[in-house]
């Protein structure tokens, strides 16, 4: 039927419009057929859980009286709950330190790898990227070994210089212990993204700058970094989302650092503990939803801010 309408040349204006309308409708239909399967998954595993979490978070389960509708009581409870607040404060503090560190390291490595080409740099690029292929859980297990007092190398290394080894699993230093793990895990991935962006820059721009007497450092600062700003923003957003939902690494180190990392160390761990440890799904949902909301607002605000800023550059 469709082939028929295609082959027959439209004669009158009216007929032409009808055929166009048909192809338009067909384009609508095929477009939706391509997007549809993803749309179903999107509704089922993103929209539905979010809506359900919101719904659950409006109820409270009590030992006496069963489940009752409490509107925003769970949120009021969360934002006055010292466990949730201290976890949220930790991830925010952690994000403020860890994200700049990771991106600075990634950017420095990408700039070096972009500027210097040799067999060794090609090898280094792969080795620096390697941790990305390691599950975060395994990465945390590995670093947990390295930090360990009983079989880690820190005692030996520091002992060699006659110093006492720092205990990265103690409550004083766990912040730095985790900082090191996430930097190790993610800097290589960010570096690859930035490196790919750097390689996409038209090299004639460098020639022009060099003619104008710009040094290597100036080329990097004035040309390379501004041109890869979109890639920088992309990884900033990724790392922000990732850091605020921090879970795997502290959850794994918890076993090794008994007493240092409590079950409310990050908001996600707290939600997990409420839901699966205490079967308090309503409150767990509220924390999840609140955290999701905080992440969404933070990222949105950040994107808005950078879009404004970018017009000044």
């Amino acid at each position: 039927m469709t082939s028929l309408t295609e082959k027959r040349a439209p004669r009158t204006q009216d007929e032409k419009r009808k055929t166009r309308g048909k192809t338009r409708r067909r384009e609508h239909l095929t477009g939706w057929l391509f997007v549809g399967p993803f749309g179903v998954v999107f509704l089922a595993f993103l929209i539905a859980p979010l809506a359900y979490a919101l719904y659950l978070s409006l109820f409270q389960k009590k030992l006496i009286g069963g489940t009752s509708f409490v509107l925003f009581d769970n949120y009021v409870k969360a934002f006055t709950d010292p466990s949730f607040l201290s976890g949220a404060w930790f991830v925010i503090r952690f994000a403020l330190v860890a994200i700049p560190v990771q991106i600075a390291v990634a950017l420095a490595m990408a700039l070096i790898l972009d500027a210097v080409t040799s067999l060794f740099t090609r090898f280094s690029r792969l080795m620096i990227f390697l941790p990305y292929a390691i599950p975060t859980v395994i990465g945390a297990v590995m670093w947990g070994f390295l930090y360990s007092r009983s079989f880690g190398p820190l005692t030996d290394v520091f002992g060699f210089f006659g110093a006492t080894a720092p205990d990265f699993l103690s409550s004083n230093l766990i912040f730095y212990g985790l900082l090191n793990i996430v930097t190790w895990q993610w800097a290589g991935y960010y570096m690859i993204i930035l490196y790919a962006a750097l390689q996409g820059i038209d090299p004639t721009l460098y020639e022009a700058a060099r003619m104008d007497g710009a040094g290597r450092w100036q080329v990097a600062r004035r040309i390379k970094i501004p041109l890869i700003a979109p890639a920088l923003i992309l990884i900033l957003v990724f790392s922000l989302i990732g850091t605020l939902q921090f879970f795997n690494e502290p959850q794994i180190l918890r076993y090794l650092a008994a007493g240092t990392i409590g079950s409310d160390f990050t908001p996600n761990m707290y939600a997990y503990q409420q839901a699966f440890g205490l079967a308090n799904f309503n409150y767990g949902s509220a924390i999840s939803f609140a955290l999701g909301g905080v992440v969404f607002v933070c990222v949105y605000a950040f994107l808005f801010f950078t879009r404004k800023r970018r017009s000044f550059l």
Binding site: H28, T30, G31, F45, L46, G292
Partner: peptide
């Protein structure tokens, strides 16, 4: 393809990039 509600749907997908995956685990 230019289909109905395309811009809106794509904007929703982009917004979903900012939803942390772990927030979905408990309700799922």
């Amino acid at each position: 393809y230019r289909f109905a509600a395309r811009r809106f749907s794509f904007a929703v997908v982009l917004g979903a990039l900012m939803v942390p995956a772990t927030a979905l685990v408990i309700p799922t």
